[in-house]
Each structure stands twice: as C-alpha cells, then as structure tokens.
Amino acid sequence: MSDISIILDKKLNTSQEEVLETFKEFLEAMIEKDDEKLYEIMDDNYILTHMSGKRQTKEEYITEIMDGTLNYYKSKIIHPRISFIDETHARLIADVELDAKVYGIKGNWTMNSEVFMKKIDDKWFLNQWEN
C-alpha cells in the first residue's frame, strides 16, 4: 500500500500524468528518506519555500530529511491542476496534505502548493515548491 494518495476531479492527459507521477515519486522519496532518488529528481537549482516562509536549497532540504529534522509519513495530493508554461516547463497546483514531524512538531498539514518543474532530456525535474 502506497503512502501517497491522489484525489482527482478530472481526467489528466498523458503529459499531465507524467508531471503528476514525478511529483508523486518526489513525495515517496521524501517519505522513504531516499536521498539517491531525491538527488535524481530535483533540479540542482531547486528551492523549497516552507509554510513559514523559510527557503531551502536542494542540498539543505535533503540534508534535513536525511538527518531526521524533517520526517514525512503520508501524503495526499488533492485536486491537482497541471498546466504547461512551454514544452519544458510545467506548473502543478494542488492542496498537498502531509502527515509529518517537522522541526520536532508532529501534525497533519494541508498546504496550498504550487510546484514548478522543468523537462530535461525527456524527464521532469522538480525546480521549485511554494507552500
């Protein structure tokens, strides 16, 4: 059983499904603390903006996942809307529910998320996540 669930309110086309699948793989890697997968799927210029406004680079974010500062247990992607800026840039907007222990605080958070991805050599990479 997957720790990621998706609630869709409309059918996605193949390109949109590819973007959503990449985001799902990213969330799974966060939960599983799979640093190899995180390094693979995140663009080198990745920036995460937490709900608090704190901004982190790819390296900072992966480090805090691996050292136990950030612990993720389950996630739900709610009504994702995926659009394409051009052939190599996509934007995913969704409520993302996370069951997590973050900076010592355990809880369930629902974040109104905006995720930007870019396609390089036919593969999608996470570039930015705004919460």
Rank of each mutant, 00 (worst) to 15 (best):
H79Q: 14
F125G: 02
I77V: 08
R81W: 11
S83F: 15
N45G: 13
I41M: 09
W129C: 04
D121E: 01
Y46A: 09
L38D: 06
D86W: 05
I78K: 07
V19K: 00
I41N: 02
K24A: 04
Q128N: 15
Y103S: 03
Y61Q: 10
I31T: 12
D122Q: 11
M1N: 12
K101S: 05
L38M: 15
K76S: 09
T63H: 08
L98R: 06
F116E: 06
W129I: 13
E114T: 15
R55Q: 12
N13A: 06
S113F: 00
S5Y: 08
K101M: 09
K123W: 01
Y103G: 02
S75W: 10
I65N: 04
I47A: 05
F125S: 01
W129E: 04
L70R: 00
T57A: 00
E130A: 15
E64M: 14
T14G: 02
L8H: 11
K58I: 00
T22H: 00
S83Y: 13
I120H: 00
W124I: 00
A100R: 07
E40R: 06
A100L: 10
I85R: 13
S2L: 07
D95H: 09
D95R: 10
I41C: 08
T57D: 01
I6F: 00
K106W: 07
I62Q: 08
N127D: 01
F84Y: 03
E17H: 11
S75P: 08
K76N: 07
T49D: 07
M51V: 13
A29C: 04
N45D: 15
S83N: 15
H89N: 12
D35H: 12
D122C: 03
A94Q: 09
D86R: 01
I4P: 05
T69A: 11
D35W: 04
Q128M: 12
V102H: 05
I31Q: 15
K118H: 05
S15I: 08
T49G: 05
Q16G: 11
D3E: 14
T57I: 07
D44H: 03
D95T: 13
L92S: 09
K76V: 12
D122M: 04
E28N: 05
F23D: 08
D9S: 14
K74W: 07
S52A: 07
M66I: 07
E97D: 13
V96S: 05
W109Y: 10
H89Q: 08
K24V: 04
N13P: 06
G104E: 07
G104Y: 04
T69E: 09
L92P: 12
E28I: 15
T57C: 06
E36C: 13
E40C: 07
D43V: 04
L20K: 00
Q128E: 13
D44T: 03
N13D: 12
E32W: 05
M30F: 10
I47W: 05
D9E: 15
K58D: 00
P80C: 09
V102N: 06
K101Q: 08
D67G: 03
K24L: 01
Y61A: 15
Q56A: 01
D67W: 01
D99A: 12
A100H: 06
M51G: 13
I82F: 02
K58G: 00
N131Q: 12
A90T: 02
S2E: 12
T63M: 00
